[in-house]
């Protein structure tokens, strides 16, 4: 695992709708891996590798939760609207695109959040703020902000380094995950798709655990994993020595929901995270490496069994 590369992604500013910094890092690294890269009008990064033909497509999102300034009251307090999933981020430091620092305060349920600027003020209504990025690691785990939003992209980018590209592959890094995966379908527009895998993180909670291997999401809100792929993958991971764990989360949204409703069968491959959705999340390095190996092998056209 390339910790510096993951750190660069986790430290990048990229709330929903302002993913440009993340997209620039992703596009640069995908190009360095020899992939043909295009950034579309929505800011999605589409990286192609291998010959023409029906592609294995791997998707990861780039945006992160945060807040947007709604208005400033007479005392100079900024009233914030949490972006989707942003109401769990709680109190602490925030940062805007110009690296100005804010103190974020929150009531108990996280629905009413306010900020006070410590710096030059703020750009005005519409200013995006995200939690001040943090990144630490041990020999076994990474503790960082925005880990759930950057880990899937980091897996793909690191996997890209070791793929022989004998099989047609596309890596789609999409925008707007937190507004119902707004960029996802457009990112896939025009691609000749054989099958889709979406990479996501899931909360450790008994059925799946950090450090216990790659997660297959069997069921999310509006999608069911194709059973033949699931069986195929199980046999395949055994050969690779990669551990598999299965999750059923009918209450959770996943990118596969969007894909399956559009007639694109897809499978969610994931990593279990501790403290998922909070300011500092924890991921195990072994899970990252397992998923990376799986992506590399699948991308090379390998099939299970």
């Amino acid at each position: 695992m390339n910790l510096e590369a993951l750190k660069e992604l986790c430290m990048a500013f990229g709330p929903t709708g302002r993913e440009k910094s993340v997209a620039a890092i992703v596009a640069k690294r995908a190009k360095e891996s020899g992939m043909q890269v295009e950034v579309d009008a929505l800011g999605n990064v589409i990286a192609l590798g291998g010959p023409e033909g029906p592609r294995y497509v791997f998707c990861a999102h780039m945006d992160q939760p945060g807040w947007m300034v709604e208005h400033m009251d007479q005392k100079g307090i900024l009233h914030l609207k949490p972006l989707p999933a942003g109401n769990k981020l709680g109190q602490g430091w925030g940062i805007d695109e110009n690296t100005d620092i804010y103190r974020i305060s929150s009531n108990d349920d996280g629905k009413k959040q306010e900020a006070e600027s410590l710096g030059k003020g703020y750009a005005g209504m519409g200013t995006y703020i995200v939690p001040k990025p943090e990144f630490e690691y041990s020999s076994e785990a990474v503790f960082a902000s925005a880990l759930s939003d950057r880990l899937p992209a980091a897996v793909l980018l690191e996997a890209a380094n070791g793929i022989d590209f004998s099989h047609p592959v596309a890596f789609c890094f999409y925008t707007g995950r937190y507004i119902k995966a707004a960029g996802l379908l457009a990112a896939l527009d025009g691609l000749d798709i054989e099958r889709c895998y979406t990479l996501e993180v899931l909360k450790s909670s008994g059925d799946i655990n950090a450090g216990m291997g790659t997660v297959i999401l069997l069921r999310s809100r509006q999608s069911i994993a194709p059973h033949s792929w699931e069986r195929e993958l199980a046999g395949f991971t055994e050969n690779l020595g990669v551990k598999l764990q299965k999750a059923v989360r009918p209450e959770n949204f996943s990118a596969a929901d969007v894909l399956s409703r559009s007639g694109l069968p897809s499978l969610v491959l994931g990593i279990a995270l501790d403290y998922n959705g909070t300011r500092i999340e924890k991921a195990c390095i072994s899970d990252f490496d397992d998923l990376k190996e799986l992506v590399k092998t699948l991308s090379s056209g390998g099939k299970a069994g």
């Binding site: 929903t16 709708g17 302002r18 440009k20 009008a41 947007m68 972006l83 519409g126 925008t175 707007g176 507004i179 119902k180 707004a182």
Partner: peptide, 11 residues
């Protein structure tokens, strides 16, 4: 519009 539930406007 900057951001609504369906789209992020082009910056």
């Amino acid at each position: 519009t900057i951001l609504d539930w369906s789209v992020s406007a082009n910056q």
